[in-house]
Amino acid sequence: MDGRPPATCAIGIMAKAPQPGRSKTRLCPPLTPEQAAALSAAFLRDTARNIAEAARRAPITAYAAYAPRGTEDVLAALLADETALILADGNGPVPDAVRGFGRCLLQAVEGMLGRGHEAAIVLSSDTPTLPTRILVQAASLLLAPGDRAVLGACGDGGYYLLGLKRAHADMFSDIAWSTETVAAATRERACGLGLDLVELEPWSDVDDADALRALLAEAGGYAAPETRAVLAQFGLSAGRIAWDVIPA
Score class of each variant (00 low, 15 high):
G92C: 04
G70C: 14
Q107N: 12
A67G: 13
R99C: 06
G90A: 05
A238Y: 05
Y63V: 03
T127N: 01
H168I: 11
L106G: 05
L106V: 02
G192E: 02
L141V: 06
A108R: 00
A64F: 07
Q19G: 04
G3Y: 06
D170A: 15
P202K: 04
R133W: 14
V230K: 02
V74F: 05
T129G: 07
L27W: 06
P5L: 04
R115M: 02
A232H: 03
V182R: 05
R45L: 12
A17N: 11
T32Q: 02
L31M: 03
D207L: 10
P29A: 11
G220T: 11
V122T: 14
R213N: 10
A223W: 04
L215T: 01
S178T: 10
A217V: 09
A10F: 06
E199Y: 11
A52W: 00
P68Y: 12
A214N: 06
A120R: 06
G163L: 09
R57P: 02
G239A: 13
I11F: 04
G90Q: 03
V230N: 01
A37V: 09
G157M: 11
Q35R: 08
L236P: 01
R240S: 12
N50C: 11
A119G: 10
E82M: 02
R56H: 08
L143F: 04
L78R: 02
G90M: 08
